[in-house]
């Protein structure tokens, strides 16, 4: 299991680096799919089957296909070669290194040994993950879901206003 974890974590990281490094937008989009696949496998190893499947179906599938469509429709040109921005690289590197050191320090000082998390309730027989998550979303968590509805409405209105070619 540990081996599989490292394998898929490496895959996710490799894909992530690819998104930043690739100059061709299509290659960058495919690197992102790779990263999502690695992430989905990690979720499945955590027994979160539904989240893993959704990661593949929604993100790697639907959203990335949409990205590719847009890239191809707009015919986004390959990024121009730029001078190596040394200062930005040094700055970003310093921040990332500092953050990494911080996380390692926190983990070494017993970061995960907090209070025990609430136990995961096993599904009743015949009730799948989907069933339980659905129950939570529309039962206990109905209120935040309503707020998300307002959020999506505002976002939809915004997309129409900002991107429609001719406002009528």
């Amino acid at each position: 299991m540990t081996f599989l974890f490292y394998l898929f974590a490496a895959l996710a990281l490799f894909g992530g680096i690819g998104v930043v490094v690739c100059r061709n937008p299509v290659s960058a989009a495919f690197s992102m799919v790779l990263s999502f696949l690695g992430l989905a496998s990690l979720f499945i190893q955590l027994d979160a089957y539904l989240v893993g499947t959704l990661q593949i179906l929604v993100y790697a599938g639907a959203i990335m296909v949409l990205f590719l469509f847009i890239i191809m429709l707009l015919d986004v040109p390959e990024e121009e070669k730029r001078r190596f921005p040394f200062i930005s690289f040094a700055g970003a590197g310093a921040v990332v290194t500092a953050f990494l050191v911080l996380v390692v320090l926190v983990l070494n000082r017993g970061g995960t040994a907090g209070r025990p998390l609430p136990a995961i309730v096993p599904s009743e027989p015949g009730h799948s993950d989907v069933h339980r998550i659905g129950e939570l979303l529309f039962g206990t968590y109905w209120f935040p879901v309503q707020i998300v509805g307002v959020l999506l409405l505002a976002a939809t209105v915004g997309v129409v206003v900002l991107s429609k070619k001719e406002l009528k």
């Binding site: 996380v103 320090l105 000082r109 017993g110 970061g111 995960t112 907090g114 209070r115 025990p116 998390l117």
Partner: peptide, 28 residues
């Protein structure tokens, strides 16, 4: 959530007030 085991603010307040809390992770 990892440190206190809850997402509700009253429960978080209670958990953070206890002595056995992992202060490093809470500060992070």
């Amino acid at each position: 959530f990892g440190v206190t085991g809850s997402m509700e603010l009253p429960a978080i307040t209670e958990a953070l007030g206890k002595d056995g809390i992992n202060t490093t992770a809470a500060l992070f």
